[in-house]
Design a binder for these strands. Structure first.
Lengths: 162, 162
DNA sequence: TATTGTTATACTCTATAACTATA
DNA sequence: TATAGTTATAGAGTATAACAATA
């Protein structure tokens, strides 16, 4: 066993199972996310939110409205404006105007943005594969399924509350 | 199916299984963490790092050195100093000096800190239970086991790299 | 009136690096 | 020389709220 103190050590043996599960989930996520953030910074001098925004655009060849990005990334409009400003200054995305609604902007990757993102996405995928590929196939399947159920659970509770 | 666009929509069907698994993990974690952060803010006017620090101290009746907190919370010494300053100002923790090493500080919860933390911890546990308890027992077990494997995997890779 | 996006502001968290005091 | 903690600094990310233009 590796001696790696971490957040999960905050759990006590008598704690409720759900709590221990949550702390383990959080620890895993933080470890992996930290690894990815660090590498994005080191190898590509960028951040996770910038990468996420570009990933969303990559999946939307016709571009995406800023409000839609805000919903998907679950941050406020103002934040999207800020991240977009940076990316546009670097020539990676571009705001375009739509015909029927002059309030809206549609964001698209520039050719340069597509090129840069392709390189980042390839590296990113390799990092992730490296971290997950040691897991037995059935564990991966079980995780995927369990997390799917968990997500539904959490999302539907949120919908109830509002 | 609930229409809730989120980070996971960034995955494409052709993406590697590991990548889809990671995005789902990240989405779950962000949803739950956001919920907890929001409630900590609303109900107790505090933050997750502050709560985490107090949780660590709660588990260490004799207190804990700041360096140890830094390792467990995986942040730098300077950050621990900052969070500690806030909590000490609010009378929730206290720095104490140790006999044999005058450089070190040992942090402890004050009686007031223990009282406040107990209330927060109870509420926190209920939030978490509420989010996880809808999961079938075998799904929870599978998640716990799979995440344990994943954590080992990631931690040991980190150890190799350094 | 409601919506889209922008701006201004403030705050938390974070890391880096230089520093003090002790060991 | 090394370690424990502090300080100073800078930057990212976040939310809130007021705002302009448009629907």
């Amino acid at each position: 066993m590796i001696d790696a103190p971490d957040l999960e050590t905050r759990a006590a043996p008598e704690d409720h199972h759900a709590l221990r599960l949550w702390l383990r989930l959080l620890t895993c996520c933080n470890l992996i996310e930290g690894e990815i953030r660090g590498r994005l910074r080191l190898d590509f001098d960028t951040t996770l939110p910038r990468f996420d925004l570009m990933a969303q655009l990559q999946r939307a060849p016709k571009g995406m409205k800023m409000g839609e990005l805000s919903r998907r990334m679950m941050v406020t409009n103002g934040n999207i404006t800020g991240i977009t400003d940076q990316l546009e200054k670097e020539g990676l995305v571009v705001r375009t105007k739509v015909e029927n609604d002059r309030r809206s902007s549609v964001l698209k990757l520039t050719p340069q943005g597509r090129k840069v993102f392709a390189r980042m996405a390839r590296a990113h995928e390799n990092w992730v594969k490296g971290m997950f590929d040691g897991l037995p196939e059935d564990s991966r399947d079980a995780l995927f399924k369990g997390l799917g159920e968990l997500k539904l659970q959490v999302v539907s509770r949120r919908a109830e509350d509002k």
